[in-house]
């Protein structure tokens, strides 16, 4: 079936916009090659180890044998593409769109995922996508082919958040499928039990993946600016209604939010998961810059604007990114 049949004109327009936006954001943040965690055939020497039976004969360092009269195997760092997974929450709560932000959390998550995908693919890394709802709603395996970006965008544009979140079980399901080692980005509001979420994500981490959570919140959810008598209707379960005086419960809400965030943060830290909380009224560039900044102080100038980043020397930035990722992956190891 041709793609034009599967994607409506509107969606195509949206995809184009998304692409434009992602390119704009990622333009200066092109990624370089990443070191493979596997050791294999490569030009870059890593270390020697003693020969054991079964090792390839060709790997033996004969020069060293001549010097020491012992068999050692030369090991090289393998260079391969990074496999990144974008897990996007599709629960109904992601539909919330406050007046101040002007867009829903889902839209923001979609844009963020597009940016990350663009960033990854621009580095010739492989990026996959999983839309999570009550289960895995859609799954696109990681590829580094540039045309794969279009498929990712189309999947994102076509995604519709709905229903109650089963984020934990969805992640567990992904972990069960064995996505391999790589980088996993979870983009969600995380409105579930933080400890369970962290535990589920830890399954992926134990599989050798590095986990980064992008928690997307609406400014209304952060500030609870309501003053009137309000009937809150659940976006996940429309039958669930709560009528209350917003001004009366505001402080209690904020206290709870604070406790929730603290719990999420602690659970993430416990499971060595990086948590990035962003509001939908925040600039994506800013968010990504901060994220990258946290990965390496050297790119702190990206935090201010993407425009500045564009003017930097591309080779220099790649080198920087490589250095960042290497340090991160080595520390994880």
């Amino acid at each position: 079936m041709p793609q034009s049949k599967l994607i409506s004109a509107v969606e195509r327009e949206q995809i184009a916009q998304l692409q434009l936006l992602a390119l704009g954001v990622v333009e200066g943040v092109t990624a370089g090659r990443h070191r493979s965690l596997r050791r294999g055939a490569s030009v870059e020497f890593k270390e020697h180890r003693q020969y054991v039976k079964g090792d390839e004969i060709r790997s033996i360092d004969w020069k060293l044998f001549g010097k020491t009269d012992r068999l050692y195997i030369r090991q090289y760092e393998d260079e391969t593409n990074l496999r990144a997974w974008l897990l996007v929450d599709q629960s109904g709560s992601m539909k919330y769109a406050g007046r101040r932000a002007g867009l829903s959390k889902h839209t923001y998550a979609m844009r963020l995922a597009a940016c990350l995908a663009t960033l990854l693919l621009s580095q010739q890394d492989a990026a996959g996508l999983a839309l999570l709802n009550e289960g895995i709603e859609r799954l696109l395996a990681p590829r580094s082919n540039p045309s794969h970006l279009q498929a990712l965008f189309a999947a994102l544009v076509q995604s519709k958040p709905h229903g109650p979140a089963q984020l934990v079980s969805s992640i567990e399901e992904i972990a069960g499928r064995g996505i391999g080692k790589g980088l996993v980005f979870l983009i969600s509001d995380c409105f579930t039990t933080p400890t369970k979420l962290a535990t589920a994500l830890s399954l992926l981490r134990h599989g050798g993946s590095e986990i980064v959570i992008f928690q997307v919140l609406d400014p209304d959810e952060c500030d609870f600016p309501f003053r009137s008598l309000t009937e809150f209707r659940s976006l996940e379960i429309p039958q669930q209604l709560r009528s209350m005086d917003s001004s009366k419960v505001r402080q209690a809400y904020l206290n709870r939010l604070s406790a929730f965030q603290r719990e999420l943060s602690e659970a993430s830290a416990r499971e060595k998961i990086e948590l990035v909380t962003c509001r939908t009224d925040q600039n994506l560039v800013e968010v990504l810059a901060k994220f990258l900044q946290s990965r390496g102080r050297q790119v702190n100038h990206l935090a201010n604007s993407g425009g500045e980043a564009r003017n930097l020397d591309a080779n220099r930035r790649i080198t920087t990114m490589q250095r960042i990722w290497r340090r991160v992956t080595r520390s994880r190891r």
Partner: peptide, 26 residues
Amino acid sequence: RTRFRTIDWGAMHLLESLEDTTQRRF
């Protein structure tokens, strides 16, 4: 006469067990 304003809300778990103000009470 003031009526309740309805808002579709995501973070319902943060509103759990807070004091309800029912229409009757209002």
